[in-house]
Design a protein around this nucleic acid. Structure first.
Lengths: 345, 345
DNA sequence: CGAGCTAATTGACAATTGTCAACTAGGTGT
DNA sequence: ACACCTAGTTGACAATTGTCAATTAGCTCG
């Protein structure tokens, strides 16, 4: 294994008499075997000759060397924790895939790191003719910024929530168009406010032929990309002018812990339907849950409850998160997650 | 190989739905393969199935994982010390630590084996903010080649002798920069010839502001690494263009048996000061002896006298040598070594 | 768009390693 | 001294791993 490396360096093999084990000194044959095998890349047979024992004994010595931690074989913690957790998370919540981005000592913000990894994942998974529904938020914006320029004319990127009033950098319309631009894909914006003033007006909007057309496309998404907001992270939803404290209050009172694509969920992940839902224009949680591939990009210690809720109710088939969040999520998983059983498909 | 160990730990194998080509950070199947093979104890075939590639590719991935230090396989140098001979040597010469590398039947050259062990020891002992002074020679070069890639930005590696004229692979400047590069440490080269033509010129050099600065750093070393040359090993010092037979002759006449960092010592280890010393640019033996931790890497039957001399005068606090040399050195030790008493601090 | 190049991947075979039942050495109790 | 036990060792076989030439995939350039 390490041998190829050594072999390149190794001079022509010189066969020499086996030197007796220096028995006069207490020399531990286990240490010698470990050194010759793991550091010098000898084969077990060569080690056996050198030590003057059978190869089978060398096998035993090496086994003991590992048991006694004379040799250490380890996947470097950076990679190790990352991959190991990703695997555990995927297994624990029945995800088809999971990315855990490693800590970087605070160089980048959590959502930037997740965005970068998500961008990577996205371009690897996108296939021609895909329709990608896109939600919005800081993390989604970060993802769009991390995307490389490409030309995927066959792909459609569709905005799955209405527009916000404010003009922050991570508004729904910008997230969508940025991603579409970077990918060189077709961009389908949802030209309507995210929240209108009454249910009546929403109904009017939804009957508009232009919007009906748009919704047909949005609803044909075979992939969706969304972040998860925490409700106590007052900033995100409101800074964008999308919501106001008064509108949120009733949801909070009913136990909202998170926001997915503008919709509130409780700590189990169940949708909390309130007055506002009848004024929102965009995919519902039920519609999102029907999309075959659902990529959730979210992390940060303030979002753990919200991400758990989202995973609990199977909104995501793929999760991109950070190390700390992943660590917190694994122990929360119950057996039902593993089997993929849930109140929602 | 690691399998038995892992198997004991691994829960009953549950056949799991294969995660589609695992979306990995950096889309790097190498990390994934390393994890599954080394941490989870899967066979290469199982890993291949999981990743959806051929087993041969898994072999390549694992090779790359080792090359990139995603997995680390190391015999902790601590255990080489537990070998009886190493303890005896340390005790006999008042060393704080000692490593004895086992014989390998001539597969690798002595200096290569010592270099490997020295590399291991070095990375285990380096602490943040260390300043490591580095001498030069075949063994030091071998050590640098055996170092794994790391990133220790807090460490400084400084060249303690001036440069050689020749361009051999083990010149002072290369030894230093190779070590610094491998460690990811700051590299401080001594930009001056190792030997200048007159004492007058040396004085001029030493007044140069740039060199004054460099010397401040070099002299602040809290660790030094050096080999020991034998004088009859005519090759080393001369092949590098560092010295010529005519220059060496007077030192030989006065009983020189070894060379430490370009300086001659007699069979007791005392410095032999001659004309050349006033033309050499670099740390003196007295300066080296003041460094708190002094790592000597040297061995081979032709160097026994020289290594004895170096140990006799306490130039080293740590020794890395080979079995044959260690065997020869133990009986030569006198009581005075044990107590650490010596003509030099 | 295809020729020409390089890097990555693979299947088939050789070499190395793991397993295990049989054996041996070295103690222990009677 | 003898049977008995235990821990360590071994040879032979099965399983896993390394190698390498042939092939394929991905590129660049005309």
């Amino acid at each position: 294994m390490i041998k190829t490396l050594q072999r390149q360096v190794t001079p022509p093999r010189i066969k020499r008499r086996a030197l007796s084990i220096p028995a006069e000194f207490d020399s531990d044959p286990v240490v010698w075997a470990a050194w010759l095998y793991y550091e010098e890349g000898m084969t077990q047979e060569e080690v056996a000759d050198q030590l003057g024992v059978s190869r089978a004994s060398v096998v035993n010595f090496l086994q003991e060397a590992r048991d006694r931690n004379i040799v250490t074989i380890a996947v470097s913690s950076r990679h190790l924790q990352t991959i190991g957790l990703a695997r555990e998370l995927a297994d624990a919540y029945g995800l088809t895939s999971c990315l855990v981005v490693p800590d970087d000592g605070g160089r980048l913000l959590v959502h930037e790191r997740i965005g970068t990894a998500g961008a990577r994942l996205l371009i690897e998974r996108l296939k021609p003719d895909d329709v990608l529904g896109v939600s919005w938020g800081r993390t989604v914006q970060a993802l769009s910024a991390a995307l490389p320029e490409m030309k995927l004319p066959g792909v459609t990127v569709a905005q799955i929530t209405g527009c916000s009033i404010g003009t922050t950098e991570f508004s729904p319309e910008l997230c969508t168009s940025n991603i579409a631009n970077r990918l060189g894909a077709r961009c389908v914006n949802l030209h309507a406010p995210g929240i209108v003033s009454t249910a009546q007006i929403k109904r009017l909007f939804m009957q508009e032929p232009a919007l009906v057309e748009t919704f047909k496309i949005i609803q044909s998404s075979n992939k969706v990309l969304f972040g998860v907001g925490s409700v106590d992270d007052a900033g995100t939803a409101m800074r964008s002018g999308y919501m106001t404290p008064e509108k949120i209050a009733p949801y909070l009172a009913r136990g909202a812990v998170g926001v997915v694509s503008g919709r509130f969920i409780d700590r189990e992940g169940k949708p909390i339907l309130g007055a506002l839902d009848n004024q929102m224009i965009g995919l519902t949680l039920d519609e999102i849950a029907k999309v075959p591939e659902r990529i959730c990009i979210a992390g940060g210690s303030d979002k753990i409850d919200a991400v758990y809720a989202a995973l609990n109710n199977n909104y995501a088939t793929i999760l991109v998160t950070d190390l700390a969040t992943a660590r917190a999520l694994v122990p929360r998983a119950t057996r039902s997650h593993r089997t993929g059983v849930s109140s929602r498909p």
